[in-house]
């Protein structure tokens, strides 16, 4: 029983890593711009596909003998290149869908985000067709048996990489000048621009970082579950969005914790109940949490008037 529990705990950690990484993107954009980037789930999907493209390219180059790279290095390169490329997707989304709407009602920006998401999905379908693609195997799966609990090297890698990135982000936001500017914008959007903080650059950077993290989530997802499809962003995106809110708006720690919590809920629900009840129970628990903590774990009470 204990081993069964521990086994699921590890699965939940892995599952929660994806949510947490994606939720970070939502939460950061929210913290800085007070807007939700509803296209973020689809940026995760695009990141996974870019990762797929880069990895496939590198693998075929390696197999042709043009590059003599070990697989682990290909994975590292894939992650880095995809982060870089996907961050541009994020910046384009910001430029097209969010910058023109910064003064508009917030709901309008939510709509553009939704629409950009649909365009990204459809664009993907148009380019690659409806078939699912297979993420190349970069890591041979090795399973370790720790007293009855089976842990694969992939799972360890996913959880370690995710937590390392979260910590890096935390340091970035706390210790650097850019991070300070981001926090300042989260605090006040009227005065901060007057103090010489380049608001547009910060916004762009926020989208870029969020998208890069989503790309990592996409690649890690591809490593764990190699089949990609264009609609994977919807399911993950909306759940991660819920996690971001649950964590408290704009709170990085909150988004991570809520992401992992969501992972735990989903895995443990399936442990006890039939898997078809997963969404039902997961969302019911979220509803209950919000009923008692209407502002999430680390959010502040809502006082500002809606901008409409």
């Amino acid at each position: 029983m204990v081993t069964y529990f521990l086994q699921n705990l590890i699965n939940a950690l892995q599952w929660g890593s994806f949510y947490a990484l994606i939720a970070l993107g939502y939460s950061m954009v929210y913290g800085v711009l007070m807007l939700f980037n509803f296209a973020h789930g689809d940026i995760f999907m695009v990141g996974a596909y870019i990762g797929f493209g880069v990895a496939t390219g590198l693998v075929s180059l390696a197999s042709m003998g043009a590059l003599a790279l070990p697989n682990w290095l290909i994975l590292v390169l894939t992650i880095l290149i995809s982060m870089f490329l996907t961050s541009f997707v994020g910046m384009i989304v910001e430029r097209v869908g969010y910058r023109p709407l910064r003064e508009a009602p917030r709901a309008s920006a939510a709509i553009t985000g939704l629409m950009i998401g649909i365009i990204l999905e459809t664009g993907n379908l148009a380019i690659l067709g409806a078939r699912r693609v297979r993420f190349p195997t970069l890591i041979q799966s090795t399973t370790y048996n720790l007293g009855g609990v089976f842990v694969t090297n992939k799972k360890i890698m996913i959880v370690v990489v995710s937590i390392a990135l979260m910590y890096a982000l935390h340091l970035f936001v706390r210790k650097t000048r850019w991070g300070m500017a981001m926090r300042a914008m989260a605090f006040d959007t009227v005065v901060v621009p007057l103090l010489g903080v380049p608001v547009n650059n910060i916004a762009r950077m926020t989208f870029a970082i969020g998208s890069a993290l989503a790309a990592v989530a996409g690649i890690l997802f591809g490593v764990a579950y190699p089949v990609l499809d264009p609609y994977m962003g919807i399911i993950f995106g909306w759940k991660a969005f819920v996690a971001a809110i649950l964590g408290g708006r704009g709170s990085i720690l909150g988004a991570c914790l809520a992401g992992f919590l969501l992972g735990f809920i989903e895995i443990f629900v399936v442990m006890i109940f039939p898997s078809t009840l997963r969404d039902f129970i997961a969302y019911s628990i979220i509803l209950l949490i919000l009923a008692f903590r209407p502002h999430g774990f680390f959010g502040e009470p809502y006082s500002a008037r809606l901008r409409l």
């Binding site: 939700f36 969404d279 969302y283 019911s284 509803l287 919000l290 209407p294 502002h295 999430g296 809606l306």
Partner: peptide, 20 residues
């Protein structure tokens, strides 16, 4: 008790709950 974003989430969760 709550408005804006949290209510949006509550309503979103409601939609998923009804569906599932």
């Amino acid at each position: 008790r709550t408005r804006g974003d949290y209510l949006a989430i509550i309503s979103l969760a409601f939609m998923f709950i009804v569906k599932s």
